[in-house]
């Protein structure tokens, strides 16, 4: 399956990615599994996605938790806790 990924704020800056298309094996995928997979890319990825800092995720523009399932064609975003207002 193919998903579209977005990164925002500190994640975007540190990972030096704002968006990418990712090809994944056609197996059940959750947000937690996806983070673990991306963390394998190296130091800064592990630190940003599986480290001490809180990361929030959205699937198709809706906030979700670690157990949410990712499906083909989804738009997934990772970002720090929000600080607007």
């Amino acid at each position: 399956m193919i998903i579209k990924l977005f990164y925002f704020a500190r994640l975007k800056e540190t990972l030096k990615y704002s968006t990418e298309d990712l090809n994944l094996p056609d197996a059940p995928m959750t947000i937690l599994k996806l983070k673990a997979l991306l963390a394998k890319r190296g130091d800064v990825w592990g630190e940003m996605l599986m480290g001490k800092l809180k990361v929030r995720a959205a699937i198709n523009h809706e906030l979700v938790d670690d157990n949410a399932a990712v499906s083909n064609g989804d738009e997934v975003a990772f970002f720090p806790p929000v600080t607007g207002g």
Partner: peptide, 11 residues
């Protein structure tokens, strides 16, 4: 709710 849910980030 805006403060905790809406996707804005301040630098």
């Amino acid at each position: 709710y805006l403060k905790t849910e809406a996707p804005f980030w301040k630098k």
